[in-house]
Design a protein around this nucleic acid. Structure first.
Lengths: 360, 360
DNA sequence: ATTGATTAATTGTCTATACAATTATATGAT
DNA sequence: ATCATATAATTGTATAGACAATTAATCAAT
């Protein structure tokens, strides 16, 4: 007998307790359909309204989910994730690069799902990321979108594990970590770099310098794409005109690299800037040194931060979509049990403006 | 009439909405007893069970509290403010203008106080702002930093009141609302505009056009500053070269204004762009039309979004500090009872670059 | 194949009614 | 004064029944 009508315990509550027991004991498993309200009324001898009250409470508590016409179903056991509607987003700095675009994509998608976004800036530092991670956990966020910091992979993993251990889904955005079984969304940096290098080659260039950071998977992939494009077109790789900085982006440092490069190697005819902000430096520098882009030197960037002031040919990255897709992954993890980790690689495409001259 | 029986909206939901409204508008204040279920049934003409459903939902949402034999009471929204450590930030769009800088200032200050920031984009639309406001309330934020939308003041006030009624502190950032007793942080737009207009006058200019939006207090103040600077220097105001758009910033529309202005009025020697993004348009346009800045025409902007590509002389606004100060106001409200509302006006200063030529 | 209409299952909304449980307050007894 | 008891107001629990809305699945038409 499920409900004891002589008990002082409310009958809806008895039913509720019984249902929880069944779920806990695995009689009703995740995603199972439990009996319909009518059936439960029959079985227990209660009125449908009473059954409904019990079920409604369990829905509120995050045990069950109702679907019209289909029935009532047991929800993913990682419990109260339903009531939590805040997602954390850790980016290096909301002011720089494409972070605003990414945040906006994520926020829009979150809003669609009636979730909110907590914004955290790590400045690419492990300590700051960890500080925020702890605060997010205290606020019991339902998920985390994380751009790994410039710290070693091991440290980033530590942060990620904190969440995963508590069954809080994590998605890496843009930057990835090798050999880590976690969802991520990125763009095809290797292919993109290969393509835009080939673009320069097709325009007649052979002496193509590249300047970027070796710190992040994204830019390391771009470097590989660049190298292989050269090799595939029988252009020797000249390590002197490959500048791969080991630290995060610091404007002044890159200014020095750029200045040194332009001064010492006037055989360079084209430059592949690891990202658009580096490309911008060259514009300023060209101005300063009386060099004309693209007449004297051609340049391409990567990202497509829409500057209206310089006509930079660059690789457009779908950043907004990256934010969106990251949030979609989080949402699907929250809503249902996902067994395997999923990786989304978005495609970039060249946006041709006027920073490259055809010389072939 | 509280419920419209012909509406497709469920009646319990209509009642629910009505009750929230009453609470928001202060008809039912904190700790007030609302009518009993029986009374509400009478008033609305609904069955008690239906009334009950509405009330139950509001109890779950944290609006109401039931006490047996006593009735149902409005909950004091500020009760848990010590334990709540999340602050809402509603900006038009995190991608545009200085929103990232503002967000970063606010976030850093929040982090110092072990608080977190929920980021919301309103797109300057009332409906979106309201959606986010409701979500923030559901997440029981401890405070709100709000950039009013482009909607009429009354609507923005409605959103603000929702928070204030629950004793949740609100700070307006950058844009203010006249005759509203609420904390705000802004910059001295009037003085700044006066100063930069005077700067142009001192450089020898008399025919100074201005282009901005008349939608926000900030830009309206700038327009006044511009006008008074002219008047004080005995320069007649020429309404033909004052373009005050009534809508939000839409790039293409401003392009048209700019193009028309440059084509029809070649007596103009200087331009005061209401903000830097407008100034940028002139750079693109100048390029297109073969006009040189500053040789053919001088231009100043407002904001100082640091573009490395064009040497724009502009009014630097301390946006990061604005975010910081806004958050500081929130924190002081959270920590202690503040009786009076406080207004902080930050000072801007001119950053001289190379977009203005001396002709006097 | 795609689109459109139909059907049936199930949850969603709503009414009208009844009695139970709780408890602040008033009343009465000591 | 203190304690016990009754009272009444209000929310809490429960029933039985009706119709609405949604939607997966099926069938029909193009």
């Amino acid at each position: 007998m499920i409900v004891d009508r002589s008990s002082p315990v409310p009958q809806y509550f008895q039913l509720q307790t019984w249902l929880i027991e069944q779920i806990d004991q695995g009689v009703f498993k995740t995603n199972d359909k439990i009996p319909t309200e009518e059936e439960l009324a029959q079985i227990t001898g209660l009125a449908r309204a009473t059954v409904r009250q019990a079920i409604q409470n369990l829905v509120n508590m995050g045990y069950l989910e109702r679907k019209r016409r289909l029935g009532t179903f047991v929800i993913n056991g990682s419990v109260h994730s339903e009531t939590r509607t805040i997602i954390g987003l850790i980016v290096p700095d909301i002011r720089s690069g494409y972070a605003p675009e990414l945040a906006r994509g994520a926020e829009d998608e979150a809003a669609k799902n009636k979730h909110s976004l907590i914004l955290c800036n790590s400045d690419d530092l492990y300590v700051k990321a960890e500080f925020h991670a702890n605060r997010l956990l205290e606020n019991s966020v339902a998920g985390l979108i994380f751009m790994p910091t410039a710290a070693p992979d091991e440290q980033n993993k530590k942060i990620i594990d904190k969440f995963l251990r508590r069954n809080i889904p994590v998605v890496l955005a843009d930057r990835t970590i090798p050999d880590l079984d976690v969802d991520y969304v990125t763009t095809n940096n290797y292919d993109g770099a290969y393509e835009i290098t080939k673009y320069l080659i097709d325009k007649g260039y052979k002496k193509i310098a590249i300047i970027l950071s070796a710190l992040f998977s994204t830019e390391r992939d771009r470097l590989e794409g660049y190298k292989n494009a050269l090799l595939d077109h029988n252009i020797p790789i000249d390590n002197d005109i490959i500048i791969a900085d080991s630290g995060p982006f610091i404007q002044n440092r890159y200014f020095k690299y750029a200045r040194a490069l332009l001064k010492t190697r006037n055989d360079i005819t084209a430059i592949f800037a690891g990202h658009d902000r580096i490309a911008l430096l060259f514009y300023s520098l060209a101005n300063e040194m009386g060099i004309k882009i693209p007449d004297d030197i051609s340049i391409v960037g990567y990202d497509d931060l829409h500057f209206t002031t310089v006509p930079l040919t660059t690789m457009h990255q779908p950043i907004y979509e990256m934010g969106q897709e990251s949030m979609k992954l989080i949402m699907s993890r929250i809503k249902s049990e996902v067994e395997y980790s999923r990786n989304i690689v978005l495609n970039s495409h060249i946006v041709e403006r006027e920073s490259v001259l055809k010389i072939a």
